[in-house]
Design a protein around this nucleic acid. Sequence first.
DNA 1: CGAATAGTGTCTGTAAGACACTATGTT
DNA 2: AACATAGTGTCTTACAGACACTATTCG
Lengths: 239, 239
Amino acid sequence: MNTEADYLNQYDASRFPSPLVTVDSVLFTLHQQALCILVVERANHPQKGYWGLPGGFIDMARDDSTRATAMRKLTEKTGVSPSWLEQLDTFSGPDRDPRGWSLTVTWFALIAWADCEPHIASVSDARWVPIARLADYSLAFDHQKIITAALHRLRQKTMYSLLPVYCLPETFTHGQLQEATEVILGQSIQRKSLIRRFEASGMFEETGESMATGTRKARLWRRKPGVDIHLFSRNLLTD
Amino acid sequence: MNTEADYLNQYDASRFPSPLVTVDSVLFTLHQQALCILVVERANHPQKGYWGLPGGFIDMARDDSTRATAMRKLTEKTGVSPSWLEQLDTFSGPDRDPRGWSLTVTWFALIAWADCEPHIASVSDARWVPIARLADYSLAFDHQKIITAALHRLRQKTMYSLLPVYCLPETFTHGQLQEATEVILGQSIQRKSLIRRFEASGMFEETGESMATGTRKARLWRRKPGVDIHLFSRNLLTD
DNA sequence: CGAATAGTGTCTGTAAGACACTATGTT
DNA sequence: AACATAGTGTCTTACAGACACTATTCG
């Protein structure tokens, strides 16, 4: 007799060698017209003292998916949940970690700077780094490659959606969204095109309030609750 | 003294519990105007007798990435390398496999039916199933969910690239590409639009040969060697 | 020649790019 | 009032949709 129940009774996972599994996230924000990434100084070996992405091991007792692991680690470092969190890619191989064959499930996240600044300012090991300054940091493992992939994803999605709103505070103006989009894409865009898309997306509602960012007051908007992101069928900046 | 070398000397991966890690692929092809997926009958527990995606454990001695694992498993089942292979997503959680907390890195692949039919016909455990017939099969684990994600990816990419060419033989006609695209999208498309994109992509060259699929002979084309896939800035079928 | 599929010409429709214009608030 | 930023009107451009047209091959 050899039922599945018999098999499972005798099954011992520790008999099989397994890769080292981690979860890492690339969290972006915008601050002072710069696109920034959250990096953490490594307190332990391996690569102690290097800077790395926020992440770590899965806690199988608490996490019911790698999304939960990513969320838990980001919340530990920032004090809040990211506004946007999607899976990026899985990186693996025998040489990327000195402890052996390893695999990291990576996530791509966005948050408003103001939402987490108080918490980040209070912990010394996490820091926002403008992407133009990343070269000043010694990054652990293949984290530079992961960041490059995340940046590519962010720029692609910015071309066919209004993803940058997830880098903004709960209420925001057209001007702030335009600035966010321009910082991410690294070039100026047509305000008219952005506003046309903003309206067509059906994702937003006016708060009724307005705010003076420049000289004239600008209307404030928020994301409609429960409304999903809208994907456009054409890209911005199609050159 | 506590150097990284000391740390690595004392490091014992087996002390830490680790999720069960697998790699699974969704391989699509086109046959007789139907979009098909390769499924394999499970010879061992768990879920023995159910059908599942081609995949399995990482062989850390031989595979230098999960891509290599996916490629190795697909080659075992089909006899050839897929024409297209990209990472899809990672699925994880405590309940998806009865052996415990598990994680599968999934890949999305395309191949021409004729390239692997001789090999598949010779092995009894692998089978092409038209997606409309998947309901007739008892699928293992969360493989239905993985297939749904792969199908979504295939359809999306078909809207903004000529990805379906990777389901065709090395040389093919405009008509075959149109048929492939229509089968994948489940609706007819404008031949003129397809040919405009085909030319604009710069991905193809004429073989000089032609072929009678219908009454009149059609020109044969192939992918230019070393040329990457072209992504269009607008979608087809934007309704 | 007619039938069927291969392939082209060209008009329409839609949404982005460009940019001038008007509106509103601050000094 | 001057000015700077908010927001609109509208022309142009690029490319997909529609569909009629011509071309080729076979019976």
